[in-house]
Simulated assay, not measured.
Amino acid sequence: MLSAACKDAIRAMIYISNLSRKKEHAGKFISIHKVAKDLGISFYFLSKNLQKLVKAGLLESHRGPTGGVKLAREPSKIKLIDIIAVIDGMDFFSTCILGFEECSDENPCTVHNLWASKRQEIYELFKNTTLMDAAENIEKFENIKV
């Protein structure tokens, strides 16, 4: 499934999206230290992954005392699959779940046909869910913390 790095990156992006919608943070850069602290993620681990998202054009970064990161585009324009592609790559959606290199439609492993439809459903879920959708869904449930 998704790596810990990818899950953390998605959580951080949701967090940044939610903060950027608040009046006091609108248009401002958000400290990576703050994001890491509030989410309970290692600063160095998180900053490495957020830098990948900057290079991919999903975040903007700025150094200095008022530096940090902010979304490079509207949360409604960022799909979860965009984040996954940058952090984990797309192999999950095209490789055998059991790890067999020779597994394919022509040469299926024992769970190939069962997994293929589920894999496609998961892909569609991430492809069709925006950062805005994820942020709004989190806000609906008081007991779920990013």
Rank of each mutant, 00 (worst) to 15 (best):
S3W: 03
A4E: 13
A4K: 13
C6Y: 00
C6Q: 01
R11C: 07
R11Q: 09
A12L: 01
A12Q: 05
M13D: 03
Y15D: 01
I16G: 04
L19V: 03
K22Q: 12
H25F: 15
H25I: 05
H25N: 11
G27K: 04
I30F: 06
S31T: 04
S31H: 03
H33K: 14
H33S: 11
H33R: 13
H33A: 11
H33L: 09
V35S: 02
V35K: 00
A36F: 07
A36V: 08
K37R: 11
D38I: 07
D38N: 12
I41K: 05
I41N: 02
I41W: 01
F43A: 09
Y44C: 05
F45G: 05
F45D: 09
N49G: 00
N49Y: 04
N49P: 08
V54D: 15
A56C: 08
L59V: 02
L59W: 10
H62R: 15
H62K: 15
H62T: 01
H62P: 04
V69G: 04
L71A: 07
P75A: 14
P75H: 12
S76W: 00
K77W: 00
I78K: 02
D82L: 12
I83T: 00
I84H: 00
I84M: 07
A85F: 09
V86R: 14
V86G: 07
I87W: 01
D88E: 11
D88K: 01
G89H: 10
T95W: 01
L98M: 13
E101D: 11
E102Y: 10
C103R: 11
D105T: 14
N107I: 12
C109Y: 10
C109I: 06
L114D: 15
W115L: 10
W115Q: 08
W115D: 03
A116I: 13
S117G: 08
S117W: 11
S117Q: 09
S117E: 11
K118M: 15
K118E: 15
R119I: 15
E121F: 13
E121G: 12
L125T: 10
L125D: 07
L125Y: 15
F126E: 03
F126Y: 15
K127N: 13
K127Q: 13
L131A: 03
L131I: 12
L131V: 12
L131F: 04
M132S: 13
A134H: 04
E136T: 08
E136Y: 10
E136Q: 12
N137C: 05
N137F: 05
E139C: 01
E139L: 09
K140V: 10
E142L: 11
E142T: 14
I144M: 09
K145Y: 06
